[in-house]
Amino acid sequence: MRLPTSSLRLASTASVAVVLLSAGNAYADYTPGQNTKPSGGKHGKTVYASATYSTIKVRQVSGPTGGKHGSLSSVDVNWKPPACWYEPVFTGQELKDFVDENDGNGDVGIHESWFGKGLWTDHYQDGKPEHNFDDAYTVAEGYKNWNIGKDGYFWRSVAPDEKDPDSWDCGKIMFWQDANVVPKVAHAPTPKMLAEYAYNKVEVPDTEIELKPTAKSTVNLPTWVWLDKGRFQEIKVRADLPRTNLWAETTAKPVALHLDPGTQDATTYPASGDCKINDDGSIGTPYEKGDAKKTPPCGITYLHATNGTPYHLKASITWQVSWEGTGGTKGDLPDGTFDTTQDINVQEIQSVNR
């Protein structure tokens, strides 16, 4: 039986109790973006009850570690990581063990849960056809004895965020695929998909810039901005999908620091506000005694004092993102940014002795 969540919301307590006593029940979401089905999982183990858990393994291969970090934001507002895909979850024996150990309670797809062993044994043991939860409500042929003894895996849809409307694009219930073969279905995993998944896992350092003067800037005198070498280095994150030969490495390379002075009454250096990141990972040039009236390679001149309300200086690092993966595949992904904001006070003094 398939029971939409819209029906669940209207069902009485008594009727729900009767339903749960039946041999097996399929709970299916009916409205994209409004997922209220029961779910559970064994996070960190090889089998899962919930389709929100992925088996993809992610690790940082190179780049700085430690300190404060944050996630990249794509400069392309229309880009986002994959909403759903399919991946191998169980061998035949593992699926049988999963059903036995969990009393037949778990997800057979992103938006469909089966409760009670009856549905599982009917379809995966006794060969009874079932319907996919896709737009066409296509038929999924049944299996005999969980396909135990065959070389391959049952694949299931995965969605990190099941409330994402696009997660409804993966509507097939758990299906079989022979070993060493990626299924030819829409939203099957690819190296590019893994690269996009890894993009969302890249952690970059906080944009902590050094200023001179450090306490207050002065009207009409430049404030120098720089970062020491090695602060910003290339970061590489690898994603592997177990039980396939699919992998991808996503590389984020820092290319520029953009300064937003927090007011239109300011001049940036360069005029674009984009300071190049040097080959050694440094930005700009450190201030030295006697540089007070020189033009910095990276910096700001404020034209008006703050008068008690500081300007909010925003420093944004642009990261150029590329990837490579299985079989020599490679490509580019949208640039990413990460920014921090700090308060700047500007004093009304025409000359200072530094």
Score class of each variant (00 low, 15 high):
92 G>H: 07
130 E>M: 14
123 H>M: 06
4 P>F: 10
240 D>T: 05
347 Q>V: 04
263 T>V: 01
308 G>A: 06
207 T>I: 04
334 P>W: 04
3 L>I: 15
101 E>D: 15
219 V>N: 10
127 G>R: 11
354 R>C: 04
237 V>S: 12
102 N>W: 14
295 T>R: 02
288 E>V: 00
142 G>I: 06
38 P>W: 07
164 D>Y: 04
148 I>V: 14
213 P>Y: 04
263 T>F: 00
55 T>M: 10
211 L>A: 03
16 V>S: 06
211 L>E: 02
334 P>E: 05
280 D>A: 02
249 E>R: 05
108 V>Q: 13
185 V>C: 08
75 V>R: 12
278 N>G: 04
201 K>Y: 06
286 P>Q: 01
306 T>C: 07
169 D>A: 14
102 N>G: 08
147 N>V: 01
262 G>D: 02
82 P>R: 09
327 G>N: 10
182 V>P: 05
35 N>P: 02
231 R>K: 15
259 L>Y: 01
216 K>N: 15
254 P>I: 03
61 V>I: 14
294 K>T: 00
215 A>V: 14
100 D>W: 06
95 L>Q: 12
143 Y>V: 10
185 V>I: 15
242 P>C: 07
143 Y>G: 05
103 D>V: 07
59 R>T: 08
109 G>S: 12
101 E>I: 10
262 G>H: 05
92 G>S: 10
207 T>S: 05
244 T>L: 10
70 G>V: 06
151 D>P: 02
273 G>V: 05
166 D>R: 07
83 A>V: 07
295 T>V: 00
282 S>A: 02
341 T>V: 14
154 F>T: 04
98 F>T: 09
225 V>L: 13
205 P>C: 03
101 E>H: 09
188 A>G: 12
71 S>T: 13
87 E>K: 14
152 G>R: 10
247 W>K: 10
218 T>K: 12
208 E>Q: 07
39 S>M: 11
23 A>F: 05
97 D>L: 15
287 Y>D: 00
285 T>K: 05
312 H>T: 14
93 Q>K: 15
322 S>G: 07
350 Q>A: 07
135 D>S: 15
152 G>K: 11
323 W>V: 00
31 T>W: 08
55 T>L: 13
268 T>N: 00
117 K>H: 03
233 Q>G: 04
300 I>K: 03
165 P>E: 06
302 Y>L: 04
7 S>K: 14
93 Q>I: 10
231 R>H: 09
189 P>I: 07
145 N>C: 04
109 G>A: 14
179 A>M: 08
20 L>S: 02
301 T>I: 06
36 T>R: 15
9 R>D: 13
156 R>V: 03
153 Y>I: 02
152 G>C: 08
198 A>E: 09
71 S>D: 12
126 D>I: 00
261 P>Y: 01
33 G>A: 06
121 T>E: 14
345 N>F: 03
49 A>E: 13
56 I>M: 09
340 T>R: 11
72 L>D: 10
34 Q>S: 11
269 Y>M: 02
74 S>Q: 08
112 E>G: 01
